[in-house]
Design a protein around this nucleic acid. Structure first.
Lengths: 141, 141
DNA sequence: CCTACATCCTCTAGTGACTAGAGGATCAAG
DNA sequence: CTTGATCCTCTAGTCACTAGAGGATGTAGG
């Protein structure tokens, strides 16, 4: 079966560069994989999926520490409720804020595309839309 | 009027550290502000708003080059339609993908909070939800 | 079996985007 | 007119990668 692939294949499948995969192992985001007789890393499907998760989470602006916590949720689903709940809730808040800001930005960029199609971009308010509209998300609560 | 504040005040108002503000100036995200007689930077309201935009955009995972482009949209609203439209559209796509992934992640983390409240977190699928569900967003044109 | 070339290994160093600190000038309060 | 906060520039450190040197191992063709 192919549930034991070398690092290059994993790199191609996930879009994460080889040295970066080794880096994630070094900093503890990815468990050290099994090694072949000749000391080469060999990954299973779970590792590939974990890497894909890490990549998307990074692209969404979560920092490594936040990803570590989200992965902890996943690694220990039978963990004490309070702890998991706390971590999950705080990230839920972070995620909601990100979605709200992105939605605001999306709307404004969409407006520009629409107006641009009609011949002229009257005014651009991308700055305003993230600049203060969403600032209240921080203070509100 | 207060439309001329020093860097420390701007830092407090935006939550961006003083050296970072100077860094943004250095790399051209923020125009060099006016200086006082004693060579100190003095910022107007527009600069503060621009910095807030930069901060939020960074938190959302946009890299400096993307932010530079979005700021360009804002700086030159009467620019040639095609160019603005192209930049805007490509970012619209990027934004939509981010929103889709965040929404998927949000749903899963919410589920964990809900189940956690009921006493047990059966399984955690945060990895799966970003790991491949959204992978098709990449390929699906 | 042997060459050739890709892929792997470790290790060191470089990049992008900050962030902290040294050393010194300037301002505002008492 | 001193004291403490804030500013200046400049250099160096951090985080999260990313590239490259130098060498071992694997796979395919002759």
């Amino acid at each position: 079966m192919s549930s034991s692939v070398p690092i290059g294949t994993v790199s191609r499948e996930t879009g994460i560069k080889v040295p970066t995969i080794r880096y994630y192992e070094e900093v503890g985001l990815l468990p050290s994989p099994a090694r072949t007789d000749s000391n080469r890393r060999s990954y299973d499907a779970a590792a590939v999926q974990r890497l894909r998760f890490i990549r998307h989470a990074r692209e969404l602006g979560f920092e490594v520490e936040a990803i570590r916590q989200l992965l902890t949720l996943s690694d220990q689903p039978d963990r004490s409720c309070a702890e998991v709940d706390g971590i999950a809730r705080s990230h839920l808040k972070e995620i909601d804020e990100k979605i709200a800001r992105l939605t605001a930005l999306r709307q404004e960029v969409q407006r520009m595309v629409d107006e641009g199609a009609h011949g002229r971009v009257a005014e651009c308010r991308v700055i305003e839309v993230l600049g203060d509209h969403t600032a209240c998300l921080h203070d509100a609560h």
